[in-house]
């Protein structure tokens, strides 16, 4: 299920140059992991999956040491990078940057000390500061639900969308969604408002959509937390015109609903699992132990989740 895409040959060459230790097998690897603190369920998932990776990998590889640092803001994360490089003396780093621009310089400094750097999810503004890039697929995150909704509605109907917080990530998803919908002129996107990936805000926005639009066929809630608020608002208004509520990211509660077929409006989801931090740590550790480099860019694809494949995405122990 992991699709690895090799991009630009130049990037690969750069990686090869930056990894002179390629000749030795079974190096000692001291891996630092810098991730955001668990302030909402997605980041909580990140923290959980990172710790899972540490547990499994350290058990399997005696030569591997993993140090995890969680930060509440970009500044703290930058400080942690310095600590990891100087105090923990890491030789490989997996970082989920808080912000792209703010952390580019600090990461570059770490790399300058000869540390192998894998960046996860949010790309740095200067890609030369990283050795490898592992990311979720934000384009597919918008494209998959658009295609699903368009198909299920037979290319005709009214839809509303909710957006997260104004970020490039959110824009990428929205653009991908709109890109698909261009091919379906009979589907009308009535409005797309920000609800901050927050249940309460989604509840309010949906209430007002319901007041405003008398016929809605589908809702792209764009996030499983927001989908919960949307469902509650629909329930309260006792509206039965909405046929699809499409969340996103595959939170365990929503996947469970899907498996149990508890809600007819929830028939599909799109994966964007915090598990990619697990994958990134695992790939980096295993490659570095063998002295190899990672491909410059690895995209963990976002795929359509339906009842048929839902079990693969259900992790009841993860907080997400």
């Amino acid at each position: 299920m992991k699709l690895k895409k090799h991009l630009l040959a130049i990037a690969v060459t750069a990686v090869a140059l930056a990894a002179p230790g390629a000749a030795f097998a079974q190096n000692k690897v001291n891996l630092g992991v810098a991730i955001p603190a668990a302030t909402h369920s997605f980041t909580a998932g990140i923290v959980w999956w990172a710790n899972e990776a540490k547990k499994e990998l350290e058990k399997a590889n005696p030569d591997l040491k993993v140090t995890i640092k969680t930060a509440a803001n970009a500044g703290e994360q930058a400080n942690q990078l310095q600590d990891l490089a100087t105090a923990n003396k890491i030789n490989a780093l997996v970082i989920f940057p808080f912000e792209s621009a703010a952390l580019t310089k600090p990461v570059a400094q770490v790399k300058g000390k000869g540390v192998y750097v894998t960046v996860v999810d949010r790309g740095l503004t200067d890609t030369s500061a990283q050795d490898a890039y592992v990311s979720g697929d934000n384009t597919a995150f918008g494209k998959v639900p658009a295609e699903y909704i368009a198909k299920t509605l037979d290319g005709k109907g009214n839809i509303v969308a909710l957006r997260g917080i104004a970020t490039t990530l959110d824009n990428e998803r929205m653009d991908a969604f709109n890109g698909v919908m261009k091919a379906y002129p009979d589907i009308k996107l009535l409005d797309a408002k920000y609800a901050n990936w927050n249940r309460d805000d989604a509840f309010k926005v949906m209430q007002d959509y319901l007041t405003r639009f008398k016929q809605i066929d589908a809702v792209w809630a764009a996030d499983d937390d927001m989908a919960i608020g949307v469902l509650k608002a629909i329930e309260q208004a006792k509206r039965d015109d909405i046929k699809i509520v499409f969340g996103g990211a595959g939170a365990k509660g929503m996947i469970k609903t899907l498996i149990d077929a508890k809600d007819p409006r929830i028939q599909a989801n799109v994966s964007y699992s915090p598990k990619f931090i697990y994958d990134a740590i695992k790939m980096t550790a295993e490659a570095r132990l063998k002295g190899e480099a990672l491909p410059a860019t690895t995209i963990i694809p976002s795929v359509l989740i339906t009842k048929d494949n839902a079990k693969e995405f259900y992790f009841p122990d993860s907080p997400f």
Partner: peptide, 12 residues
């Protein structure tokens, strides 16, 4: 009773 849940983003 509105959402039946509390999360770290509640009441922000």
């Amino acid at each position: 009773p509105r959402l039946g849940s509390s999360s770290p983003t509640t009441g922000l």
